[in-house]
Design a protein around this nucleic acid. Structure first.
Length: 801
RNA sequence: GGGGAUGUGGUGGAACUGGUAGACACGCUUGGCUUAGAACCAAGUGCCGCAAGGCGUGGGGGUUCGACUCCCUCCAUCCCUACCA
């Protein structure tokens, strides 16, 4: 009598076996390697369904690759520094370090219960000094390579809490805790010259096997544009205001010049002018986030300064505009209201001239399209492209400008004024900064007492006062620094002598990187930059860290990204307990393709559980029979074999090429539904049993990357003294898949009017005659003249009447 | 504001290269089993219509013998926007 499917016993048994065998520890050997990495989590407390989805995808591919005889490396670790630990510490009176440790422990238990085949011997956490000492060393090497500098830059300042706020902590211009109106403040910070690599970051995108949309986002983010620097002489002075524009062809449409509120000239003017001063104060009230600035109403103030247009000699007013960014271009823009929508909005508001100088198909202003020049003196009639070239030439002659390539990408500000982060390894000796020696690393984060709240390092006098005239840097690193090189450290995580040892040469680069689409730009761009910079200082090989990328869509709840900070997470634990890890994994993979975003719903978890029960009751108690003889197969046997082999081919393609696990599962379900009931009987013929054997072997193997516990458990019993289920992937036979008949679709005027199963060997004429005789088709043809026949071999015939 | 995506039955989704729209599931309906329920099994299930047939992939337009798929346009939703990770 067969037993019922008990996920608890099965999963426990199988997981114990894995850990006893140390099955997923990876060692360098002579097989082809496959480094499969899923983005490590921030230890926020518990896993949520977004994590389950991400890590199941990674595990399915790892297990599949292992069956294809790849040497697979799949590590896991913790992105453990960050703001939420500080917030939790303040809210619950716990130490950020204890809170983080506790969360890691919980989440690790959850990951293990899901049966992910990680090599835990390489586990790392970014908050360990043993990890971040190497990060401090990298910073030093970057500094020595000239990639690090200090610069003033803007932060959100909460005047009540007297802290710097993250953009996320500013809600409608107010501090989230204090509710105070935030202000933009300028402070000294550390920067890394990612812009030195702008061209390479752009060019080598081409070599990557990444989704096109991600490459496009990175390309647009880097934003290389050809344009011109144009100098406007200040009236009554020998000085110039230099603007950057990508559209020099619109220069005759300039009706004003606008400078950023943070431009030195604006700040200087505010010293003697109260109305300008109060305008600048007002500009400080919008948060530093780009989205907030762009959405804010365009505001400006006339400085009463005039500049001279280099080509027309016209006097133009200089305004201060809140929409001008100091960090992009020169912090000064030429206002062309007819051909730029921001300039247009601004000009409308302040009644500035709107002069059309480009004629394009769409004449409605503002029109940002390129076209033909009008109202542009001798340049009239030229195309935008040609005019841009000639105008630049003219400006060069007049010594009023030059051609310039500009990037949107800005240097990376890595300073954070917080506690729970990696200390920046710098000391100030009599005020001047110096990166500390490697031998003194790591500079450890000072420990806090048991329930004590985090205080920014700047307020920790024991920490900052290193000695009489030596002060420590109080900023910590942006946590993106921590996550920019962990993929490489994993390969050597158990080596405390070397940052990257011999193993790193074998395992790198990452063959497949899997993570949320929300990381498409920042994290992935910073990591790519790190890899190139590490290459140039001789620490890694190759140009790119991640060969292939799979970006999974967001798991949404109530229409928003599932995350701890939004408080809309769904904990997988109750589902794991009730249905088991295999069901949860199967459900997550079945419910939608990985790249698509997914609104959480538990509506068909039951269906996944039911399917596992079904395969259990088919296989449990049955034994593989090794037939020696050859068979003459009957039709239904041939059909089942064709289905088995065709399914295997499809699933292979779905795992390997498409990453389309939902369709792979559907195909396996179809195969099981396809098995005729009489094949499962005791008194089935040997040939039938042979075909059933094949279907079962294929199904268990195909399903095992997704539901590894039940498949391995069933396999051990079914195949008793044979190989492990992981030892191989079966092979399909194209000859068995090939059929000699197909279903012909018969259309009249593009509408399906009939179907018939016919032999593939028929000629077009024979097919046509057969098709025309089909009853319903005959009706629709109804003695009309056939004007045209479209014939697609082995598929369709369409009569046009 | 800018950049990137998505939109198909009551629900999740399938249709891979312009060629059968709705595979596979969930749910629901009916029947079987059962004292009853759960579980399980069988049949049905896009919409309108008694039927013949017609309509149907966010809305509108176009290309084509043929459009979920290509083009134009509009709408809605989600992600990123440099200090959430």
């Amino acid at each position: 009598m067969s037993s019922t499917y008990n996920h608890k016993i099965i999963e426990e048994t199988v997981q114990k076996k894995w850990s006893k065998e140390e099955r997923y520890l990876s060692k360098v050997d002579d097989r082809e390697k496959y480094y499969c990495l899923s983005m490590f989590p921030y230890p926020s407390g518990k896993l949520h369904m977004g994590h389950v989805r991400n890590y199941t995808i990674g595990d399915v591919i790892s297990r599949y690759k292992r069956m294809r005889n790849f040497n697979v490396f799949q590590p896991m670790g913790w992105d453990a520094f960050g703001l939420p630990a500080e917030n939790a510490a303040i809210a619950n009176n716990v130490n950020p370090s204890d809170w983080t440790d506790q969360n890691i422990e919980n989440m690790k238990t959850q990951l293990q219960s899901l049966g992910f085949s990680y090599d835990w011997s390489k586990e790392l956490r970014t908050c360990d000094p043993s990890y971040y000492k190497w990060e401090q060393l990298i910073f030093k090497k970057f500094f020595d390579a000239g990639l690090v500098y200090r610069k003033k830059s803007l932060v959100n300042w909460d005047p009540v809490d007297e802290t710097v706020l993250a953009n996320e902590q500013v809600i409608d211009g107010k501090g989230w805790r204090s509710g105070a109106q935030i202000e933009i403040k300028e402070i000294d910070q550390w920067f890394i010259k990612i812009t030195d690599y702008a061209d390479e970051l752009l060019d080598s995108l081409e070599s990557l096997d990444w989704p096109e949309n991600v490459k496009l986002m990175q390309k647009n983010w880097i934003g290389k544009s050809n344009g011109a620097e144009i100098k406007y002489k200040i009236h009554g002075s020998d000085e110039f205001l230099t603007t950057f524009s990508t559209r020099p062809d619109t220069i005759y449409g300039v009706s004003f010049i606008a400078i950023s509120p943070n431009h030195p000239m604006a700040i200087k003017l505010s010293e003697d002018d109260d109305s300008i001063l109060s305008f600048l104060e007002k500009c400080k009230e919008t948060s530093a986030a780009e989205a907030d600035m762009a959405k804010a109403e365009k505001l400006g103030i006339d400085t009463n300064i005039k500049v001279i247009h280099p080509l027309t000699g016209e006097k133009l007013s200089v305004w201060i505009g809140n929409f001008v960014l100091l960090d992009y271009g020169t912090g000064v823009v030429m206002g062309v209201p007819a051909h730029d929508s921001r300039d247009h909005e601004f000009a409308k508001k302040y009644n500035l001239e709107i002069k059309q100088v480009i004629k394009s198909e769409n004449d409605e202003l503002p029109s940002v399209e390129k076209g033909t020049l009008i109202n542009s003196d001798t340049f009239d009639g030229l195309s935008s492209e040609e005019a841009s070239k000639r105008i630049i030439t003219k400006l060069i002659e007049l010594n009023s400008g030059e051609e310039l390539i500009q990037f949107r990408l800005r240097d990376w500000g890595v300073s954070r004024q917080r506690y729970w982060g990696c200390p920046i390894p710098v000391v100030y000796e009599d005020g001047s900064p110096k990166v500390i020696d490697e031998l003194e690393m790591p500079i450890e984060l000072p420990k806090l007492g048991k329930n004590s709240q985090p205080i920014p390092l700047s307020q920790n006098s024991d920490f900052i006062n290193a000695s009489d005239n030596i002060m420590r840097e109080s900023d910590t690193f942006d946590t993106f620094m921590d996550s920019s090189w962990y993929y490489a450290r994993f390969t050597s995580a158990d080596n405390d002598k070397q940052i990257f040892d011999e193993n790193s040469k074998y395992w790198l680069p990452v063959d497949l990187y899997i993570g949320g689409i929300e990381h498409a730009i920042l994290h992935l761009l910073y990591s790519r930059f790190f890899h190139k910079a590490l290459r140039d200082i001789g620490l890694v090989e190759g140009d790119e860290p991640f060969k292939r990328l799979l970006t999974q869509g967001m798991v949404l709840k109530d229409g928003a990204k599932m995350s701890k900070s939004k408080g809309n997470t769904v904990d997988p634990q109750p589902y794991i307990e009730k249905y088991g890890a295999d069901t949860v994994r199967l459900y997550m993979m079945f419910t939608s393709p990985p790249e698509q975003s997914l609104e959480w719903s538990e509506s068909s978890v039951e269906g996944a559980a039911r399917f596992l029960k079904k395969i259990w009751s088919l296989v449990e108690g049955r034994r593989y029979i090794n037939f020696e003889c050859e068979f003459e197969f009957e039709k239904d046997e041939v059909d089942l074999r064709r289905k088995s082999h065709a399914t295997l081919k499809k699933v292979e393609h779905d795992y390997e090429i498409r990453f389309s696990f939902n369709t792979a599962i559907a195909a396996i379900m179809e195969l099981l539904n396809y098995i005729p009931d009489n094949f499962k009987n005791e008194n089935a013929s040997d040939a039938q049993k042979f075909c059933l054997n094949e279907a079962i072997v294929f199904s268990l193997k195909m399903l095992s990357p997704i539901a590894p516990h039940i498949c391995e458990y069933l396999w051990e019993d079914f195949f008793f003294d044979g190989d492990s289920i992981e030892s191989s992937w079966p092979e399909f036979d194209e000859n068995i898949i090939e059929a000699d008949e197909f279903e012909l679709i018969i259309q009249v005027n593009g509408k399906v009017r009939g179907k018939m199963v016919i032999s593939k060997s028929l000629e077009e004429d024979e097919v046509k005659n057969l098709a025309m005789e089909e009853d319903n088709v005959k009706n629709h043809l109804n003695e009309n003249t056939i004007k045209k026949i479209i014939f697609i071999k082995d598929k369709l015939i369409n009569f046009v009447i």
